[in-house]
Nucleic acid binder design. Structure first.
Length: 194
DNA sequence: TAGAGGATTGAT
DNA sequence: TCAATCCTCTAC
């Protein structure tokens, strides 16, 4: 199957958890001039304004999370802990405040560039902060369109039979919402984060 | 404007 | 288990 770039309709239809699950097996591609890197998405988390784990909780818009309130199909990239850039895909309709966090990739192309950028040669994309560094993705791309930016997502016909679900990571402050089974990953895939 | 805290990571 | 490190938000 030849690669098909996901269109905006993919990101705007259905529930954010359905889209988070559907993104497993899709291919994230980043291009910087001749430096093309890509990887299969093997781990995601869903976030919605309706629960406390989300930056858009309570429909509260700030300069940081404004991209989340745009219509689906754009990137929401923000800095966490002052060190790491985290990549989210905005979903749903304009004003909804929903996004899917991409947590881990299985590298396909450009492993050489990834290793060079991270200064590491092992599991360079098995974590949300690591994969953005490996692919050269920074907050400069926050709010950019997935159909007209150096970063996009393709469908290459890859499907996984076993998908696992569980609570999301690092949002203990969200109370009962932290227990929502909104984390999705490919079972037994070695590139999933710890 | 100061202070607290955070969707992580890697070293110990 | 803990420190690194700095952006974002809130309170004053």
């Amino acid at each position: 199957m030849s690669p098909v770039i996901l269109q905006q309709s993919f990101y705007r239809q259905g529930d954010v958890t359905e889209i988070a699950r559907a993104l497993l097996g899709k291919v994230l591609v980043s291009r910087h001039g001749k430096r093309m890197t890509s990887g299969i998405i093997v781990e995601t988390e869903a976030y919605s304004w309706q629960e406390r784990g989300c930056h858009a909780y309570g429909n509260k818009m700030t300069p940081r999370n404004a991209a989340m309130f745009e219509a689906g199909g754009i990137l929401y990239i923000y800095r966490c802990y002052g060190i790491h850039n985290l990549l989210n895909v905005v979903t749903g309709q304009q004003g909804m405040g929903e996004a899917v966090l991409v947590r881990a990739l299985e590298p396909i192309k450009g492993l050489k560039w990834m290793e060079e950028r991270t200064g590491n040669s092992q599991r360079v994309t098995s974590g949300p902060g690591k994969l953005t560094k490996a692919m050269g993705i920074t907050t400069d791309l926050n709010g950019s369109d997935l159909n007209s930016s150096p970063v996009w997502i393709e469908d290459q016909g890859i499907t996984f039979r076993q998908i696992s679900t569980g609570p999301r990571i690092g949002i203990d402050y969200a109370g009962a919402d932290a227990d929502l089974p909104w984390r999705f990953w490919v079972a037994k895939n070695p590139w999933v984060s710890r």
